[in-house]
């Protein structure tokens, strides 16, 4: 009973810590281990014998390089679109709107999260129908046509889905910005545009990076939106989905690609202080 506070604290956090280790690190480890096993090619059952064949298959087939590039293009596009939309939104919410209306605005930004993911994506699907969809109705009078299902539809759908995850950190970052810093910039002769790009953006940068971690990683791993809006277009998640039932080790090897990309990404943004913003 007479234990030191340190020991008490340790015992208090040991359970969540164990959970963290088992669930997160453990599952990553399991993923890695699975990727170096063989399968029985007929019954699809995993055989626990070491092989590098899965990685050879992944890296020797140009299709998987292409799909990795496509996935990166989508994840980066989604992130950029979210940044471009979220910055003015967050700036308006944090600095222009009256403090009283801010909770309402935050609630509005969050509303897309209240509905089921599938409902939202199926709604986008009906909008993207090449001939009868809402987008076609909207664009055809202007002489264009709906992009139909494919990469563009996926980028739009994912940008819509993940936007709140970008707006919220940037909003929090901008709200923390003291008024006096903006006043100081104007006082020193900077017009609003200069203040925005010279002061607001650099100070909010870690928050933007924090938001991008969400949008980027969520996009990297998505496969359901791609199935529903992608037409014949596929991303890494779909490769995993297509293969996990028949060739689990191969699917695991493919699944390691986004994990590695995320580790590289997190490593490269670590210095910005974005991780303190999460």
């Amino acid at each position: 009973m007479q234990r030191s506070p340190k020991a008490r604290a340790a015992s208090l956090i040991s359970l969540p810590l164990a959970w963290l280790l088992i669930i997160y690190i453990g599952s990553l480890f399991a993923l890695f281990i699975t990727s170096i096993w063989k399968i029985d090619t007929f019954t699809s059952k995993v055989i626990r014998e070491f092989t590098l064949q899965n990685f050879i298959d992944v890296f020797s087939d140009r299709a998987y390089f292409n799909v990795t590039i496509r996935t990166l293009v989508v994840a980066i596009s989604v992130t950029l679109i979210c940044v471009l939309i979220a910055i003015p939104m967050a700036f308006f919410m944090a600095r222009i709107a009256k403090p009283k209306s801010r909770p309402v605005l935050i609630a509005l930004v969050l509303t897309p999260l209240w509905a089921s993911y599938l409902v939202k994506i199926y709604a986008w699907r009906t909008m993207f129908y090449p001939e009868t969809g809402f987008l076609n109705w909207l664009i055809s009078p202007l002489g264009g046509s709906s992009p139909g299902f494919g990469m563009i539809a996926v980028i739009i759908g994912l940008s819509y889905l993940w936007l709140p995850y970008m707006v919220l950190p940037i909003y929090a970052g901008m709200e923390k910005l003291p008024n006096s810093v903006l006043d100081a910039s104007a006082d020193l002769g900077a017009k609003p545009g200069r203040t925005f790009f010279g002061v607001v953006l650099p100070i909010t940068w870690p928050a933007i990076i924090a938001g991008s971690i969400f949008t980027f990683s969520l996009s990297m791993g998505d496969y359901i939106t791609v199935q529903i809006l992608g037409g014949t277009f596929q991303m890494l998640g779909n490769v995993v989905y297509q293969n996990f039932s028949l060739n689990l080790p191969f699917a695991a090897a493919v699944a390691l690609i986004p994990v590695i990309i995320m580790i590289i990404y997190l490593g490269s943004v670590r210095k910005t202080g974005a991780l303190d913003n999460l």
């Binding site: 003291p178 006096s180 100081a184 006082d187 020193l188």
Partner: peptide
């Protein structure tokens, strides 16, 4: 006139230095 068009400068109570 907006602040950026005035020939005055201010020292703020909280200094308002640019942290970045």
């Amino acid at each position: 006139l907006p602040p950026y068009d005035r020939d005055v400068n201010t020292v703020f109570q909280d200094y308002a230095l640019f942290p970045h």
